[in-house]
């Protein structure tokens, strides 16, 4: 169990936050990541060692998240724009105001991305996975990952809120 605890301490926070970014709901993310860790631990004999273990973990986490998204698709489809803004803005008073503004704008833009673009972009820029590991995690080809990341970057760049923030930054 020591190995399990060490692994959880190391991997849980980033996996949890990744799920939060994908699902936009801390409660759902907690459930999904718990389910994923339990599944991975129970089938740990089949998991490749080394770096492959991380890609495998994220594959299970992403699957758990997407199964929740799909089961709640109808509910989510009825959400309006105000629901999409539910990503909590950083509330740490120590945080620099610029970072808070960026996080707020990027959070809104991320929420407007569809799942199939949101997942790879979160895995790439938050979880830090290389494209080949993202391909493993989302069970797509590396070429598909590359095109989705490019599409996600384009959409984020063209998002009105983020573009406005970038304009203000340039003005400063």
């Amino acid at each position: 169990m020591d190995d399990l605890e060490a692994w959880l301490d190391e991997a849980y926070p980033r996996a949890y936050r990744t799920a939060c970014l994908v699902l936009r709901s801390p409660a759902d993310a907690e459930d999904a990541v718990q389910e994923a860790f339990l599944r991975v631990w129970r089938f740990r004999d089949a998991i490749p060692g080394g770096d492959g273990r991380r890609a495998w973990l994220y594959r299970v986490v992403v699957n758990a998240c997407l199964s929740r998204v799909r089961s709640e698709k109808t509910w989510r489809a009825h959400t309006g724009d105000e629901e999409l803004q539910r990503i909590p803005a950083p509330s740490d008073p120590q945080r620099d105001a610029e970072d808070a503004a960026l996080a707020s704008c990027l959070g809104g833009a991320l929420a407007r991305l569809p799942e199939h673009l949101r997942v790879p972009v979160v895995l790439r820029y938050y979880s830090g996975l290389p494209e080949k590991d993202i391909a493993v995690a989302i069970q797509r080809r590396p070429g598909t990952v590359k095109s989705r990341l490019a599409e996600a970057r384009r959409r984020l760049s063209e998002d009105p809120a983020l573009a406005e923030w970038a304009g203000l930054e340039v003005a400063r």
Partner: peptide, 15 residues
């Protein structure tokens, strides 16, 4: 993007 995602993620406290 890395900076922004890091900031957003930091807003989620690990239970």
């Amino acid at each position: 993007l890395e900076r922004g995602f890091g900031d957003i993620a930091a807003g989620y406290d690990v239970p």
